[in-house]
Design a protein around this nucleic acid. Structure first.
Lengths: 113, 113
DNA sequence: TGGAGATTTTGCCATTTTGCCAACAATGCA
DNA sequence: TGCATTGTTGGCAAAATGGCAAAATCTCCA
C-alpha cells in the first residue's frame, strides 16, 4: 500500500495512518490461519503448553512453535515457562469474542446469495 | 492443518470443526492486508464506489477490484451496481468494532514488554 | 450500433507464507 | 555431569499471495 498524502487523507475524511493499518493487518493475518485460529480457540478455554497444542493440531512441534510465535509477536497470546514446559494464554481478552463475530459474518454471507 | 480424529477432538474438549476454522481463517485473512483494512475502515463511514476506493488506496484499479473480491467472497462487504459504477458497503455490522479490538490488542502487546 | 467510462478477469512474476527436518537451547533429574 | 524432555531456530522446497497490465465485460448515451 502506498502512503497517502496528507492532502488526500484529508479529502478522504482522515481515516487512520498507514502504520495503523499495517499493524492491524498483522493482527488479522495472525488470526488468518486455521491452525492459529484453533490455537486461539483452545486458549480461550484456558492455558495450554506447546505439547498439548501440538497434539490438538496434529502437526510438527516446530510448526506449532512457529504459529505461537506469530500470535505472540502481535500480542494476541503471552507465554510463560514453568519448568520444562512453556504455557501459552490469551493476552487480549477481546479475541474471545471473535467467534461470535465470525458467526455474524457467516449469516451475512448466506443472506447475500 | 490435518483433520483431528473424533477421539482427539473429544479429548480436547470438542472445540470446532476444521471447516469452521478454515472458514473463519478466510475471514481474518481477508482483513489481514493493510489495503483491505483501509477499505473496510472507509466503508464503515459509508458506501464507496471502486474509483473512490482506488484513489484512497493509491494503487491500480484492478488491484483494488481484486481486494474487494476477497472481502466480498467472505461476506464482509456487499456490492451493488448503479449505472456504470459499483458501490460497496459493509455487510457484517460487527466489523465496525474491529478497530476498537485492535486497540485493545495493541495495549496488551505494549504491556507485555 | 458504436464509443467511452467503470469495473472485473486473466496471465505473469516477485515476494511471502507454510511446514517439515535437523540442529540447537533450556530445564529437570538421576 | 550426563541424559531425557520440551521448545525454538534456521534452512529448504512447495504453495499461496499481491500487484500490474492487457483483455474482457457491462452500462450509458449519442
Amino acid at each position: 500500500m502506498q502512503p497517502r498524502s496528507s492532502k488526500s487523507a484529508a479529502r478522504s475524511g482522515e481515516l487512520r495512518s498507514p502504520q495503523e493499518y499495517r499493524a492491524g493487518a498483522d493482527v488479522f493475518k495472525a488470526l488468518g490461519h486455521s491452525s492459529r485460529l484453533l490455537i486461539v480457540d483452545a486458549l480461550t478455554r484456558g492455558e495450554r503448553c506447546v505439547a498439548e497444542l501440538t497434539e490438538l493440531i496434529g502437526c510438527d512441534t516446530s510448526t506449532v512453535s512457529n504459529h505461537l510465535a506469530v500470535l505472540r509477536n502481535v500480542g494476541l497470546v503471552a507465554d510463560e515457562r514453568r519448568g520444562q514446559q512453556v504455557f501459552y494464554r490469551i493476552a487480549a481478552p477481546c479475541v474471545t469474542k471473535v467467534f461470535a463475530c465470525l458467526e455474524e459474518v457467516r449469516s451475512a454471507r448466506e443472506k447475500q446469495r
